[in-house]
Write a protein that binds this DNA or RNA. Structure first.
Lengths: 221, 221, 221, 221
DNA sequence: TATGAATGAGTATTCATTCAT
DNA sequence: AATGAATGAATACTCATTCAT
């Protein structure tokens, strides 16, 4: 009896639900269009006007959903980081063997980069300034998510499978290598086909991890 | 607050300062100014008008020496490649020991990147499309210069000091690693100070070469 | 750098803060917020959207209380005129001596201007067009309130303490002088500090009234 | 013989002369159009686009002659100050009698304001911030021109015709009065017709000067 | 009563480029 | 060889206002 009974009330409720959903839809639609545009035009040729055009709304409308251009870009990056961070964590959680963990993290990183080239570019190459500015309600900047990597390296050293050394330096080395490959491919897709890159991942991880191993050979075994 | 200088006036001012000394080689003067501007403003905030202003010539004049903006950028990149290629070759020529050679090449690459961040960025990150378009009167695109790297890897494998394997894949691995570090630093100078990067070079090369070695340990010895 | 707050979010925030307390008199709340905003941003940087944001209502809501922007501004001015007129009348009523009356009116005028710079500016400098358009249900435009001044001048002449002459011209002279000082101070606060202005009031009134006196000296005595 | 003889040379010379002149013409044309527009639309509704439209050039062209909107406005004000300053000085130079001088200056001030309402408004009411920022190549800000007024007051006091007192305060009083009348008329032309204002000038100056006189009566005689 | 969604018109400014000279 | 003049297209952003609900 306390449920909304009148038809009018039910209609109103449905309407407001649809509203919310549509609103989210438009916000998401803007972000999707922005993603497409970034893919096609690159970051420098990316304008709010074109985004608006693409979704069939006036340019002004975008400002109803995003404070300004930067906020739209930030949202794109943020969304990507959510996925990225999740994938890294899943990879890290997939095993307790430090070496396996490093390899899994490396794979996850690679895969994210290859499957989300536009966003990877945004996150690490074009707007890396956002890496260091935390979201309004959060404490840590996004870059802090990299702790999964340093943790794995630390564990490897403590377990005695990696050569003793500076955790930060080792992590940086590992990051450099994977970032290097991903970004080379993104910047110069003509150079190496995606399939070649995907095929190189294991070799490269072998080399990287091999270079850090206490005892050579175990990485490849 | 008010600095009532028309662009025309600013040009005129730059004019009287620079004109005489550089008249003979205006083309080079343009490129130099462009380089400075890139350094100060970055690639996205780089405009022909400002270049012209800086050298004290009219914007139109630039078109007498370069077909359009792209051609000027291409020339900058080209000039940088001349230096870059030369430095790599010198490094390669400094020794016949393949391992030493790889290390030397790696160092040369790093140094170029750190000392010419603006140009490195242009060459490998922002306008890498130019890597594959040869100069009008030449056959090979610039990317071909990387033969020094593949040669060294090849020699290492043949000499039995590197593990047998695909030369291209090994070279790509090596390149990824050095590019990764350089480009990380360029994109995120907040992350790692230049001095830290310079200090990391040897470690990183050790790991990379160590990962490729037939017998572990010899890289560091 | 990044403050990812959509306008909608900002509105919602303001909303929860203010809503309750002001709900009953939204019209007044709008006007108060508008006044604050005028003070902070000046007339040119004064927008309905910001007013709405400030009170935590949607911009549309303002249109329920005011036909358009102009009507809101008109209301502000009108409210100010109520205070202004009342203060002038009180001053006029404070004494029956015409000279004293003129002096009191002058003081009241000055004080209003200095204490309500934003409104004074609106009333007499930026939107003086409103001075001559009466409120919908009234006959006389606001400017008619100045009758207190002309009355005082008239009384002074009739009492023989002011030189005989045209009442309108004398009134205009007096008004010019006080308006001149107030508006100079409002337009160029750098020129004369508020304290200097406040200190000059008496001197200036002396001169003005002295210039109108039948017998010199009595104004200062 | 050393004169340019060839027809070509003469043509070229004429051409370059015409060029310069045309350039100045366009600059002046922009300023004239801006003045008109200000008169019609007021300062707040004054846009570069409309100025451009009015002279039949693209909006971009204005930027060839003025760095930005502010510089155009500054130029307008500056030009007006040249005329204004000159007229004040001429008035001051027209007599050596301090009282006459004050009256002449007052008249000149009034006349300038009435004949150049748009510019007066700009100078003293809308962009009075410019009063305090000197031109790039000059030391004193425009406001310094008011020295003619303080000089006259000073002379009057020293000659014993004005009551002893603070020169700055007296000058401010005088300025307030004339500014008051001019700005009242500019803000509310409906209030007093131009002819009435012109007719009031003498009365007002009489009162002002009368209020400052040592011995009453002499101002009017 | 209140609002969310949307927009068209407008702003200043910058840029690469062209053309006649 | 060099330039002055000019422009069209673009950009981010803001605002007052409307309409359906």
């Amino acid at each position: 009896m306390i449920e909304p009974v009148t038809r009018a009330e039910r209609v109103r409720k449905g309407s407001s639900q649809r509203r919310v959903q549509e609103k989210e839809n438009l916000q998401q639609a803007i972000m999707d269009a922005a993603g497409e545009l970034l893919l096609e035009q690159g970051y420098s040729g990316f304008s709010l006007r074109q985004v608006a055009e693409r979704i069939g709304y006036s340019a002004t409308t975008i400002y109803l959903y995003f404070k300004d251009k930067d906020e739209l870009v930030f949202s794109l990056i943020d969304e990507a980081w959510d996925r990225f961070g999740r994938e890294l964590e899943q990879a890290a959680a997939s095993t307790t063997n430090p070496i396996e963990q490093l390899r899994a993290i490396g794979h996850a990183y690679f895969n994210f980069g290859l499957n989300n080239a536009v966003y990877y570019q945004l996150m690490f190459m074009q707007r890396s300034d956002f890496l260091f500015c935390p979201k309004p309600d959060e404490e840590l900047p996004r870059i802090a998510s990299f702790v999964v990597l340093t943790n794995a390296v630390q564990a490897g050293i403590e377990a005695g499978v990696l050569k003793p050394g500076d955790v930060q330096a080792y992590s940086l080395t590992a990051w450099s290598l994977v970032h290097g490959l991903v970004s080379l491919w993104i910047s110069m897709p003509q150079l190496i086909s995606e399939s070649v890159v995907r095929g190189s991942i294991d070799t490269i991880l072998d080399v990287a991890i091999g270079g850090l191993l206490q005892q050579q050979g175990s990485a490849i075994s």
